[in-house]
Design a protein around this nucleic acid. Structure first.
Length: 421
DNA sequence: TCTGGGGTCCTAGGACCC
DNA sequence: TCTGGGGTCCTAGGACCC
């Protein structure tokens, strides 16, 4: 056993791996439809675009060309990326760039199946893993036999092989002294990459990269940095720390400085409880609270029912319920209410969410509506986890007193017409 | 012809309590 | 009269991530 105390003379250098599946959803689809290998394939958009098996045994696929709708690209093959298509791009735009690309619908059940498979394969070699969504994980290799010897190269190789054997899928792995560097590293040699990084690589391999490559520097922060002439990670590293604090705030400024210098002490988190569960939907066309009253009411009720079933299946009740709306101009508002008792059934959720809705001015057309449960408390008898239960939040003193302060009375979401019965 | 759905974390102000 | 200070909870919004 190593004694891991920061600053101790013989504390071992941490070895953290980041493993990222290559074009995960698209690659899973290629296992099913190997005839698409080598082609530009885009996953995303709406339903009903299943490939059709023809009498001669070949499959007929939908292409992007005639796509109409509000979907975005979930992911795509490297051939599609070469045409300029990327994740989160609107499908209409992707269709202009790659009209002949094959379009496949998303199949999360299938991706979750492969997700479990690759994670199980990794866990058999290195049990300390942190889930970062369906297609990526961090792995602590520090205490793994032999990993210190070659900076984790052999283990990384073994992980990649194990993932391929169990799934037929390729991934990219980086091993580094911490999560921040490992995450950057796994992108350096994609696809099918294997990257080893040490502190010595900071100036040569990390500093020349765009600041945006740091996990935590998003579009807004990158734009602000660029406004000050800071474009690369090295630019940020060279900036005066006091200046960073003054311009980006105590917390974020300090973090920027540390991150740009490759410093990150975060541990691998092997277990966590969900903090919120939500359901939302974007309409095919913008809807108005008055003119589309019954459509909206039905959609809203259905979202509440789905949220209720998610909560019950996962074994939680919600102390706080909220709604999220997006208007036609993309303005976003949310409202939430904390209840005297946690709830998990559809009628109660519909009632609470309906009360939130009444506190919003609904004169503008809506593009999206969502329902969210927070303050999750495990319900008895289910989800027997070893982890300590989240401390239940104190119940609200009273329902929101400002319930009809703003509203022209639009009875459309009135809680008396739940329709959940 | 713009921009999905599911999350996490942070900030900030006001209420409320001691 | 002239104005504490710390703590927690709740709500709303925003940035960011996959």
């Amino acid at each position: 056993m190593h004694i891991k105390i920061a600053g101790m003379p013989n504390a071992p250098r941490r070895l953290i791996a980041h493993l990222d599946m290559d074009a995960f959803y698209a690659s899973v689809e290629l296992l099913r439809y190997p005839d698409l290998r080598g082609q530009a394939v885009v996953i995303g958009g709406g339903r009903d675009r299943q490939p059709v098996l023809q009498p001669d045994g070949t499959r007929r696929y939908a292409t992007l060309r005639h796509y109409a709708g509000r979907g975005v690209v979930t992911t795509c093959t490297y051939e599609a990326r070469a045409l300029g298509v990327h994740s989160a791009m609107g499908m209409m735009k992707a269709a202009r760039l790659a009209p002949d690309a094959v379009l496949l619908p998303v199949d999360f059940d299938e991706y979750r199946l492969y997700s479990r498979r690759f994670k199980d394969a990794v866990r058999r070699i290195a049990p300390q893993i942190e889930d970062r969504g369906i297609d990526e994980i961090y792995i602590d290799l520090t205490d793994l036999p032999g990993s210190q010897h070659d900076a984790g190269a052999a283990v990384a190789r073994a992980l990649k092989d194990a993932v391929f054997e169990s799934t037929g899928l390729r991934c990219s792995v980086a091993v580094a002294p911490n999560k921040l560097l490992a995450k950057i590293g796994s992108e350096l040699d994609k696809p099918d990459g294997l990257t080893l990084l040490s502190e010595a690589d900071l100036t040569t391999r990390i500093w020349p990269l765009a600041a945006r490559k740091v996990n935590g520097i998003g579009p807004k922060a990158a734009e602000k940095l660029a406004g000050f002439g800071l474009h690369t990670i090295g630019d940020v590293a060279a900036a005066d720390p006091q200046w960073l604090l003054a311009n980006f705030g105590r917390s974020y400024g300090a973090w920027l400085h540390a991150a740009a210098h490759g410093c990150d002490e975060r541990a691998i988190v092997t277990h966590s409880e969900p903090k919120s569960i939500s359901r939302e939907t974007t309409f095919e066309r913008d809807l108005h609270a008055v003119h589309d009253r019954s459509t909206l009411s039905d959609l809203f009720t259905r979202l509440c029912e789905r949220l209720a079933s998610d909560l019950q299946r996962k074994g939680y009740a919600a102390q706080t319920l909220g709604i999220k709306l997006r208007f036609d101009d993309f303005r976003r508002v949310s409202r939430d209410v904390t209840l005297p008792e946690p709830i998990a059934d559809a009628r109660a959720i519909r009632h609470a969410a309906g009360s939130c809705l009444k506190r919003v001015d609904l004169s503008q057309r809506l593009r999206l509506i969502g329902v969210r449960a927070t303050g999750l408390v495990p319900t008895s008898g289910t989800k027997a986890t070893e982890a300590p239960a989240p401390v239940p939040r104190k119940a609200a003193k009273a329902a929101a007193p400002e319930a009809h302060k703003w509203q022209v009375d639009l009875p459309f979401f009135s809680t008396t017409e739940e329709g959940t019965a």
